[in-house]
Amino acid sequence: MSEHHKDYTGAKLGMWFFLFTELMLFGGLFILYAVYLKRYPKEFVTAGDQLSVVLGTTNTLVLLTSSFFVAMSITALQRGDKKFSLRLIGGTIAFAGVFLIIKYFEWTAKFHHGVYPGSPHMKEIAPGESIFFSLYFITTGLHGIHVIIGALVLAWAMLGVKTGKVNGKDWILLENAGLYWHLVDLIWIYVFALYYLVL
């Protein structure tokens, strides 16, 4: 391919379009949440109380901070501070790991109590509660997959920064990776509000 003028606005626009599709993908789950919350308001509260607010809040802080790191890393790169930028991206990826570890403990604790999709226990509890937990597992599971993908994309961008392909003059890859990571954060903000704080 001959050298064409690189279209940064186009690349960013394309990324935003992709974020819209991700938003709608989770949107389907939010539609279900709205409908079932309407039908089972009491059961949702009972079930929501069984989720750990402490762990949920911790994870929220972890993700917000990781988002903060990405935003900082872009500014750092734009200002030519490559080392600081690399550290910040590394920090984001590390926090993605922390998030997943906390999530792992949350899930296994639920499994120990017999709460997982299709379990005998789920068939015994009130229908609304089992719906809540099913939605919870599917939404956080899908979100978890996005955390993993986001971390991988960030690792790719980090490699780009390291080799100098992504730099103070051409940072679109890091910018787009960052946009994706912020989306993961955005979805979590709503998951946290709807599942952990429902009362």
Partner: peptide, 22 residues
């Protein structure tokens, strides 16, 4: 609109494999 189909068939898949009951 297409992502909504995406999540719908994923839910169908999960429903078949795990029996989520949604």
């Amino acid at each position: 609109a297409t992502p909504i189909l995406g999540i719908t068939v994923v839910l169908l898949f999960v429903e078949r494999v795990l029996g989520t009951g949604l």
